[in-house]
Design a protein around this nucleic acid. Structure first.
Lengths: 177, 177
DNA sequence: GGGCGATCATTAGAGGGACTAGAAACAAGG
DNA sequence: CCTTGTTTCTAGTCCCTCTAATGATCGCCC
């Protein structure tokens, strides 16, 4: 690995003070992480039972279920950033393999409600859990304050990405949230 | 671990002390980030000139060039976690659109050397740079120690993922030769 | 220095997953 | 009732990756 020579060095003064400056090293490190994860996931695609999108969909379903929310097909499409047509075949795949079932929405007969089955937790118990464990092992050695701060930043980054759509990229005006 | 729906609450004592405990919230927040990024990238695929893999490939090439290393086709395949066959068509795409050129490797006539062109930096200047800016904006408000710690953890996570291959997932033994 | 296995890039063919376009069923309001 | 908007699904297409097999070259050992 190259030693990434080109960091914009922060002005050396404040060591403990909150700085209004951005941190390019963090964005760069985040890129390293995502590209490492993508590469790992491609390398291991044979032994992983589900594709990337399918896994994200399943996680979304389980999270919604824990939170007590129901998930309809359209919700999943929006959450994953794919079209509803793609979502239909995604649901077909997951239903065919027994990860979820389609149920009628009692309040809207056009909609369907997606209900994860017990099988839905299986991926998290297979090779996926080993990945989780390896990741967990890499998070030790922090104090509570640091851990909290990291989670804060990651959440802020995720929400910032949520606000981006195609229009925001072509029209640099922040159209409002 | 049966399901672990909520967070494993750290033992409330150490607020400033380094803890050997893992931080599931960090892994979870990281998942949120990667899924938010994937969703954003899918939403904006129309206006982004390159696919995800193509972009990663270009970044790898530029990084190698800055570090003074040459990149051969096989190197790219390994870095991206795809087969050499897929790499061939990836190089075809990138070469066709003028992002790189193939050159002969003087030391090995079977290999080709990939040389990024000036065009290779164009994607980082378009919508991609806007994404970068939005991410940068979300990293403000940290002190130097916190920023350093975050980068440390992310790098450690990335390296941990680098060490995972299909065999490591099926054979939990770390016996790789 | 000639043969032999290993390595590198490529081609050919197949499959998965995402997209666009359009249609059917239903909801909601005039 | 009728019109307009929403939700899902079908049909057809395209892009990207994979497996399998080929041609060219390297490294090595006899």
């Amino acid at each position: 690995m190259p030693a990434t020579p080109a960091h914009a060095k922060p002005t050396g003064k404040g060591q403990r003070e909150r700085s209004p400056e951005p941190r390019p090293e963090i964005v760069e490190a985040l890129q390293e992480f995502t590209s490492a994860e993508a590469a790992m996931r491609r390398r291991s695609r044979r032994v992983l039972p589900l594709g990337e999108t399918d896994l994200l969909a399943l996680r979304h379903l389980l999270r919604d279920q824990i939170a007590g929310n129901i998930t309809r097909a359209g919700d999943l499409a929006r959450a994953l950033g794919i079209t509803t047509a793609s979502t239909t075949s995604l649901i077909d795949r997951l239903a065919r393999d027994g990860y979820l079932v389609r149920e009628n929405d009692p309040t809207d007969r056009r909609s369907i409600v997606l209900v994860p089955t017990a099988q839905a937790m299986a991926p998290s118990a297979g090779p996926e859990s080993l990945i989780q464990q390896i990741l967990l092992d890499a998070t030790v050695g922090l104090n509570d304050t640091e851990a909290t701060r990291i989670v804060e930043v990651l959440r802020r980054l995720a929400r910032a990405l949520d606000g981006i759509d195609a229009d925001a990229l072509t029209e640099p005006q922040h159209g409002g949230s």
